[in-house]
Every structure is written in structure tokens, then in C-alpha cells.
Design a protein around this nucleic acid. Structure first.
Length: 543
DNA sequence: TCCCCTGGCACATTTGAATCGC
DNA sequence: AGCGATTCAAATGTGCCAGGGG
């Protein structure tokens, strides 16, 4: 019954999508850079393969506004949310199949930037990449019906510049360019992933690329943030033309708003009044986990050669790079290690879910999987105990309590774009257009094999690569690889995530923890994964 | 000196507990 | 007792700014 309900919701949405009934959220694919349905050989589930999944970036127009101005994201020691927040609408999932949705943020290139003369300029070589971390959507794992029912929001994802961040936030370097990527992982027949049938897709929207900063550099971005972020309402001018002026820019025609005057008066007063009631960082204890990808190897393939402009170039017709990834019998296994949290908060723990690789860079494929425990969450739990498992994997929307185990074994490293040696080249807006003339193909690694460009399919300006775990985002894209050679778990290596059968449905999730026995425990409803990536030795190369 | 980062501030929103009425 | 609506305070998320450090 519930299953029928879930299907009905899904069908309705998909129907409306097709008819353009939700143009606000689901504009035409060709305009949104939606992933198309790549002609990836399907295996056993026609119309249900992961490569058929379509993802639409929510509020894409807003993203485009930021993108055209040069999106900046504040990073702080305590962690800062992204704005616009990363929200997507997903269609094409099998309503009964369970998926895990997660995000990672990878370097867009290997440059460090500076904001000079109201423009972003390349200021040198990028600093070594931070430990890569994954943000797993709190609802994960959940059925396709669940994901398709409503927007999938990653608004609670936080960015930090604290290299020792204990909260599991995604660690970034300031003044560097990054590209968020969405990954959809499908649980296999064993309600885990990492086995031969496991697959995942990577969706990249180039308009979500950004430069991380500790304070806004471009006043246009500041204005956009203030105008669109409800939390920044306090900085909005009350009348027209009340443009706030940043000390960093707008020097030509400074306009001091009432708010600014007030702010300065208050600030002066507060400084004179002493430090009464100094706030204490109430950092949200969060689950800690991350994965590490190859350090120092940027992912992006930005058009650094293009002259730098104050704005990002007009967004091109976004094309989705669709990259799916499915394990095969003889595929070498990509490990998604999980481990226990190295920091467990006592009481309040956020619902953030991050993956993290083992601290060691050596042979992540062989690294010891480990996971972290979740603790609490204010977010409504949409599925319960992981202990439950009938083995069928079928679940309706309300069957979310049948949380599938998450096998981390299969995750692939996020490979950076080919390097650029563009010292002093003006910053290139996030065009990230992926063209056939400049294909970017991951270098074959110990766990993967690159394919010749001829093997690539093209969908609506999107370059589809198959057999590649992750595609560098050069445009709004989606990549799907039906299989990853060598992704199969090694013999004798149990799936990192196993679902215990027979658990009763509960309002809160409780996952069995991966331990020496190969299980992980993810408790209500926040939990964390630590993920090891098979990043060792893998590189992007030009084909 | 310049650039970048940090910490504290005020303001707005969000969240959850407490209260009330039906 | 149970449920829903309302209220309120705390928590949280913002950008701004002065100051500090390299």
C-alpha cells in the first residue's frame, strides 16, 4: 500500500516533469544540463539502471547568478554552510531500490587564486589538497521513491578550512577553486554496495563550482548572498539603492547604507563596551569522517587559458557528464573504508554524514575499512534500523527502516583535472566546459582502467564516459560507469557494510558497525561513515 | 605594508520545548 | 490522555568589522 503510494508520488512527479509542470524546479533538461540517459549497456534491470537516473539542480538560476559573478563560499574554522545550498531533484530511480546520495568537493584545478582589481587571478600553485571528505545525505540509504519524492537537500553540508577539523566538515583550502559533485550509489542485491552489481553515478553541475574564501572578496557575491540568503536578511537594505559597500570593493562610488552606519556604530560601541558576553563557538559536534583523495592532484579542467573576467562567462548550455560505475566480477575492488569516529560528541551530534578515508595514503584499496558512529540528529529520521533486512531490498517509501548496509569498498577516488601550468593567467570563470577536443580521462590506476576517448558517448553536449569511476567536472555533467574494472572487492574481504537481517522497524536508524567482522554501526539518525578511496596512484590524464 | 585569517558582534531564521485549548 | 496550535527561548546561520599574524 505504502509502496503504491510511493510509486504514485514518483509517477506523478515524473509525469509533471515530462510535461513541464514543474518548470520552476524541473526545467527542460536541455536547459538544465540534466543527465541524459546514456546508452550504457544495461544489465538486468531495464529502465532501472543507475545510468538512467536524472538529476536536476534546484535553483539553478540562482546558482547561475552566483556563477556568473564568480561564486565564493565562506569557509570558517567552525564550518560554514554553502549558499546557495546544493539541492537536486532526482528522477529515474527505481522506486524500490535503495540508494545512497553523497557529495564530495574536489579541487577544480591546481591553482591558488587572489582577488585583484575586482577580478580573480591565478596567484600561484595550489596548496596540497586537504583530506578529502564525503558528505553523505542524512537520509541515506533510502529508496528511489524516497529520493524522488522531494528535493534532496545538502544544505547542512559545511565547509571548513580547519585541517584538523573534528566535526567531519569538508576541508578546503582558502582561495582555491572547487567543484562539488553528487554521487548516487546504488545498493546491490545484498543491500550493500561493493559487490559486482553495485553501481554509482556522478553528477557534476559546473555552475556549483566556487572559490573558497575566508571573507568575501567580490561585493557582487556579497550582495547576492544578502539578497538571497534568509539568514542574511539583517544586512539587507530597507530601501532601493541601499547598496552595501564592502571595504574590499566598490571603491568608486561608495554608498553607505543605513545598515552600514548602524553596523559601524554598533560595532564601535561594542568594542568600547568591552567584550561582555563573548560568544563561545558552539560548534555542532558532528560526525567525523572523510575520505582522502590523491593529494595535490587537482581535478578540474577549467579553461584557465581564457582571459579572466570579472564575471563568470555566461553559463553555457550545461551538459551533464554522466558517469556511472558498476562493479564487475573481476573488477578490482574500490574500497570505501569505514571506521569508527575518532571523535564522538557526547550529546548533540549533527546529522552530517561524512566519509573519510583512512589517514594513510598508501594503498587505500587495501586500507582498513572503518566507520564511525552516529549519535543524534535533529533531523527527522526517514528510516530506521539497519538491522532489518529481509534480503529483498525492496522497500516502499515507508520501508525506509530497512536501511541497507553500505559497503564502502567500492568507492573510487575523486580524481582531479589535468594539471595546468598557468601561472599568472587570469582566473577563468567556471566555464568548465567539457569538450571532445579536450577530453579528460582519469588515468588508469591500480583499480581502474582508462578508456580511449573513442569509447565515450556524447549526450546533449555532455561527454559520457564509461568504465571510469569519476569524471572530472568540466561542465554540468553526469557521469555514469556501469562497471569499474577491478572494483570488485578482494577475495576474503567482506563488504564493509552489511545489513543485519531481521531487525524490527524503528523510528531511528541503527546500523551495524563495520568492525573487524566487517560491519559498521550507524546509529540514530545521524551516523557517519569513513570512507577509503582507491585513490592511490590514480590520475587524470588527457587521452 | 599587504594579504589573509580569526574572533566577536548584531541580526534573522530555525528548532524544539513548554503551554494551552479542544 | 491525546492531539494540534501557539508561544517562547535557545540554537544556529549570516555578513561585517577590527585586529592580528605571516
Amino acid at each position: 500500500m505504502l509502496q503504491e503510494k510511493a510509486s504514485a508520488v514518483t509517477d506523478e512527479r515524473m509525469s509533471r516533469t515530462q510535461t513541464g509542470g514543474e518548470t520552476d524546479l524541473l526545467p527542460d533538461q536541455s536547459q538544465l544540463g540534466l543527465s541524459t540517459t546514456p546508452s550504457v549497456p544495461s544489465s538486468s534491470e531495464p529502465d532501472q539502471n543507475i545510468e538512467h537516473i536524472r538529476v536536476v539542480l534546484h535553483e539553478r538560476e540562482l546558482w547561475k547568478k552566483f556563477h556568473e559573478a564568480g561564486t565564493e563560499m565562506i569557509i570558517t574554522k567552525a564550518g560554514r554552510r554553502m549558499f546557495p545550498s546544493y539541492k537536486v531533484k532526482v528522477t529515474g530511480m527505481n522506486p524500490k531500490t535503495k540508494y545512497i546520495l553523497l557529495i564530495d568537493i574536489v579541487p577544480a584545478d591546481d591553482h591558488r587564486y587572489k582577488f585583484c582589481d575586482n577580478k580573480w587571478m591565478v596567484a600561484g600553485k595550489a596548496e596540497p589538497a586537504m583530506p578529502g571528505r564525503l558528505y553523505v545525505h542524512p537520509d541515506s540509504p533510502a529508496t528511489g521513491a524516497h529520493w524522488m519524492r522531494q528535493l534532496v537537500s545538502f544544505q547542512k553540508l559545511k565547509l571548513t578550512n580547519n585541517h584538523l577539523d573534528p566535526f567531519g566538515h569538508i576541508i578546503l583550502n582558502s582561495m582555491h577553486k572547487y567543484q562539488p559533485r553528487l554521487h548516487i550509489v546504488k545498493a546491490d542485491e545484498n543491500n550493500a554496495f561493493g559487490s559486482k552489481n553495485t553501481a554509482y553515478c556522478t553528477h557534476v553541475f559546473h555552475e556549483t563550482a566556487f572559490i573558497s574564501v575566508t571573507s568575501y572578496q567580490n561585493h557582487k557575491i556579497t550582495q547576492l548572498k544578502i539578497e538571497n540568503n534568509p539568514f542574511a536578511k539583517g544586512f539587507r537594505g530597507s530601501e532601493e539603492g541601499d547598496l552595501r559597500v564592502s571595504r574590499l570593493q566598490g571603491k568608486e562610488y561608495p554608498v553607505i547604507s543605513k545598515n552600514m552606519v548602524r553596523q559601524r556604530l554598533i560595532s564601535s560601541h561594542s568594542h568600547l563596551a568591552g567584550k561582555l558576553g563573548a560568544g563561545v563557538l558552539t560548534g555542532h559536534p558532528q560526525v567525523l569522517s572523510s575520505y582522502q583523495y590523491d593529494t595535490g592532484v587537482p581535478l578540474s579542467n577549467s579553461d584557465s587559458q581564457d582571459p579572466m573576467s570579472n564575471h563568470f562567462p555566461q553559463s553555457r548550455d550545461p551538459s551533464l557528464l554522466y558517469h556511472c560505475f558498476k562493479h564487475r566480477e573481476n573488477a578490482r575492488h574500490l574500497e570505501l573504508g569505514c571506521k569508527r569516529p575518532y571523535l564522538e560528541s557526547s550529546s548533540a551530534v549533527s546529522e552530517e554524514h561524512y566519509f573519510r578515508s583512512p589517514p594513510s595514503y598508501e594503498s587505500p584499496l587495501l586500507s582498513h575499512p572503518y566507520c564511525t558512529d552516529a549519535i543524534t540528529s535533529r533531523e527527522a529520521c526517514m528510516y530506521g534500523s539497519m538491522d532489518t533486512e529481509s534480503g529483498s531490498g525492496a522497500a516502499d517509501t515507508d520501508d525506509l527502516t530497512n536501511s541497507p548496509s553500505i559497503n564502502c569498498n567500492m568507492w573510487a577516488t575523486m580524481q582531479p583535472y589535468p594539471r595546468y601550468s598557468v601561472e599568472g593567467v587570469p582566473y577563468q570563470p567556471f566555464t568548465a566546459h567539457f569538450t571532445n577536443s579536450t577530453p579528460v580521462v582519469p588515468h588508469p590506476t591500480s583499480s581502474m582502467v582508462s578508456r580511449p576517448q573513442a569509447d565515450l558517448g556524447v549526450y546533449n553536449s555532455a561527454t559520457v564516459q564509461r568504465g571510469l569511476p569519476i569524471m572530472p567536472p568540466s561542465s554540468s555533467s553526469s557521469s555514469c560507469s556501469p562497471a569499474v574494472p577491478g572494483s570488485r572487492e578482494r577475495s576474503g574481504h567482506p563488504p564493509l557494510y552489511h545489513k543485519k537481517p531481521g531487525s524490527p522497524l524503528r523510528p531511528h536508524r541503527e546500523f551495524s558497525a563495520y568492525s573487524a567482522q566487517g560491519t559498521i554501526s550507524i546509529r540514530d539518525p545521524s551516523y557517519q561513515y569513513q570512507v577509503g578511496l582507491s585513490s592511490a596512484g590514480s590520475h587524470w590524464t588527457d587521452s
